[in-house]
Structures are given as structure tokens and as C-alpha cells.
Nucleic acid binder design. Sequence first.
DNA 1: ATAATTGCAAATTTTTTGCAGGTTC
DNA 2: GAACCTGCAAAAAATTTGCAATTAT
Lengths: 140, 140
Amino acid sequence: MKNYAELLKEHGLKATFQRMTILSAIEELGHANVDEIYEKVRQSHPTLSLATVYKNIITMVEEGVLVEVPIVGKKSKYELKKEEHLHLVCIECGSVVDRKLDEDLAEDTRKVADSSSFALRERQLNLYGLCSECQVSKAS
Amino acid sequence: MKNYAELLKEHGLKATFQRMTILSAIEELGHANVDEIYEKVRQSHPTLSLATVYKNIITMVEEGVLVEVPIVGKKSKYELKKEEHLHLVCIECGSVVDRKLDEDLAEDTRKVADSSSFALRERQLNLYGLCSECQVSKAS
DNA sequence: ATAATTGCAAATTTTTTGCAGGTTC
DNA sequence: GAACCTGCAAAAAATTTGCAATTAT
């Protein structure tokens, strides 16, 4: 188990085994929805309840430890909070990968917000398409 | 009722009163979730069932008449399919407004996709923050 | 010691489904 | 008239809640 205990305490949350297990599962999976997290977590802690997964996801999102990633047509996924980035979402295999959000892109969105007197707080950029693996398999 | 009948037929769907009512509700609301659509639609057609709203949203999204707009922490909203754009989502009042997605922004996202050999199909750009109205009321 | 957290079971909410009757093309 | 669509009621799925027992600090 990494330094999840510290991470949790920094956010004013108790470092329970359940929470650390959940964080570890999400980090391993990269991006995962509630069911995927629950499945993963049961492998190492079979008695951890689904209700606890739900409660903790809500709490950890509120406290800024996790971030919700809503996906068109699917259940939201969750990831550890990290540097701002965008998502490449494969419409074939469902994979989600992070990519750097470069300054040009950031600046472009800032301009749009400014021109509407909109006080920008967060960006959520998802690009949907085919990952390179799925382009290959579709071609066959 | 506008030319919803034609729109539906172009997409291979029968032009029922229910569908046209739903489309009209969504157009009036701009962006709305299932419950908001159901509420609106009941005003003019009180017997229209929630199940019908659900079924038709699914069908019309599949056929490309509607687009799902997932929102962090809330139920997805739906809008009529139109020219590509981004969304300004107010975290205070929940309003969602469309803004033009300019060529710079489009080009920047294309670059990211290309550099990952990702075959881009759709973009989903949501900017979260405070709309100008809510900035004023928060200041008071 | 105490305040927060867990797991369970039950309750609620949300979404989907089956099917008989009705409507569109 | 055939295929599709609707509304209802019931089923299934997803999420939330209450509370007694347990755990972290």
C-alpha cells in the first residue's frame, strides 16, 4: 500500500483499510466505474461492501481525492486527482487514457470563457474515437 | 410543432405525437435531463408516460437526433443534435449554454489525437464555472 | 474517549422490460 | 395490413439510508 494514508489525512479523511484498498484499485485500473472498483476491491478484501464503495467514492470526490469522469452512454468512471489532462475514450474497447492538456488548448478554452464572462473553474475534455489497437482490429 | 416530423423520418423513425412533443420540450429547454423533459412534456400531454420518454431518448440518441451531454455530479442532459460546439456549465445554477467551437480549438484537439494515433470521432468539451449571473449573486 | 467509518439490510430512486392495444406509413 | 410505437404495471438495476458494531486518531 502506497502513501494513500497520508493522502487521505491531508484531505481530512481517516485512513481506513477500505479507503486505501479502493484508492489502490482505482490507481491500478487507471479509470474505473463503481462496479469495476467493487470487483477489484473484493479480490483482496472480500467483505468490503458495495455500500462502502459508494459512500467512499462520494466522500473522496467531495474532498478532492478522486475525480468523476462522465462518459457518454456509460456509467461514470473515477480516477485519482492529478494534474489537469484530457481523455481519449475508445468507443470500441472502452479504454480511457490521459493526455497532457497543453497550453494552447488551455488558452483556447480560456478565451471562450472570457468572451462569455464565464468564470472558468474546471475543464472536462473527452475525445471519443478508436484507439490504435481497435483501429487495427476493425481493419481486419 | 415545427418540422420535427421530417427530422424524425429522415432518421427512419415514425413521427409520433409523443416524439414530437419530446423534441419540442428539449428544444425549448435547450438542455434537459430525463425528469425535466418528462415534466415539460406532461404539461401539454399529461398521459405521456415516463417509459416512453426513456425509450425515445434511447432511440433518438441511437439514431443521431439527440445528443447526450454528461455532466459531472448530475444526471446527463440531452440536446438536439446540431453543429459541433462546447458547453459552459454553471456550477451554481446548473445552466448549460452552447458556444462555438472555433477552429483553433478543433485543431488543437486533432493534434493531440494524431500524436496518439487516435482516430478522433467526437469531441465533448465542457467548461465548468460560474455564469455571469451567478458571479453577480455570489458577490453580494 | 470520541468521532468517524463500516457492513448489513432495507428503502429509494432510476431505468428497463413485456405485452396488449393503438398508431403510422 | 405490417411494422412500429405507446402506456401500463412489473421487474431489474443503481444508489442511498439507518443503525449497531467497529475502528482510527
